[in-house]
Each structure stands twice: as structure tokens, then as C-alpha cells.
């Protein structure tokens, strides 16, 4: 199992050559996010400042959405609703390094703990 996980990590990391080639355009960093009652799970914990694309999949039973809140009172617009089993791509621009919070704005969901931290460096 440990060997399997290690190999998975190695095989999944983009090769350095490709990462460098892509650098001049600074494409959006993609962050996979799963949503369910009442949790977000982030597949990437830290991203470079700049454009970030959240790829949200709803594994739950209810509709969810996402809003990103960050330093200096930053608040993104709230995304469209994500229905169960649906996937939504949601782009934001996170310019300032720091801690950002992903929250679900559906009534009661944040209070139930539906939030997660994304670090921007």
C-alpha cells in the first residue's frame, strides 16, 4: 500500500520539463474539490497566486455551491448551484497570498461545517 501510494504520487506529478514549458502563460491552477453534506475535500491544499479553477463535484444528496473568502475582505461571487452527481468548473483570481476559505452558502451548510481552507502562496 505504501509503495502503491508513493508510486501514485510519482507518476501523477507533471514532469518538470512540461511544467517549465507551461510557465510563461501561467495557466490557471486547477483544484479538484468534492462537496457533500457537510464537507468540502480539496485535492490540492496550496496554490500559487493567480487564476485558480475549482473543479467541484457534488458527491452528496443536496445542491451545494461555493464562495471563496480571503484576506482583505475578498469575497468571490457565489457559484451556480451544483446538483448531486454534477460537476462545476468555477474560476476565481486569488491575487494575494494567504488563507482563503471555501464555503457553501446554502442555508445552514456553513454552520454545519461546510468550509475548507486553501492556501495561496
Amino acid at each position: 500500500m505504501i509503495i502503491g501510494s508513493l508510486l501514485a504520487t510519482m507518476a501523477l506529478a507533471p514532469s518538470p520539463a512540461l511544467a517549465e514549458r507551461a510557465a510563461p502563460h501561467q495557466p490557471a491552477t486547477t483544484v479538484g474539490v468534492s462537496a457533500r453534506e457537510y464537507d468540502f475535500a480539496l485535492y490540492r491544499a496550496t496554490v500559487p497566486a493567480g487564476r485558480v479553477t475549482l473543479v467541484l463535484h457534488n458527491f452528496g444528496e443536496d445542491d451545494h455551491d461555493v464562495q471563496v473568502r480571503g484576506p482583505g475582505g475578498y469575497r468571490s461571487a457565489t457559484s451556480a448551484d451544483i446538483e448531486p452527481e454534477a460537476t462545476l468548473r468555477y474560476g476565481v483570481r486569488l491575487r494575494r497570498p494567504g488563507r482563503y476559505l471555501l464555503v457553501c452558502t446554502k442555508p445552514g451548510h456553513l454552520a454545519a461545517g461546510m468550509k475548507a481552507t486553501l492556501r495561496v502562496r
Partner: peptide
């Protein structure tokens, strides 16, 4: 689209 695959994050 010229980018490497991102199996974990990209649907």
C-alpha cells in the same frame, strides 16, 4: 490542449 494531464484535479 498542450497541458499535461491532471488526473486528481481535472474531471
Amino acid at each position: 490542449k498542450g497541458q499535461p494531464l491532471d488526473p486528481i484535479n481535472e474531471w
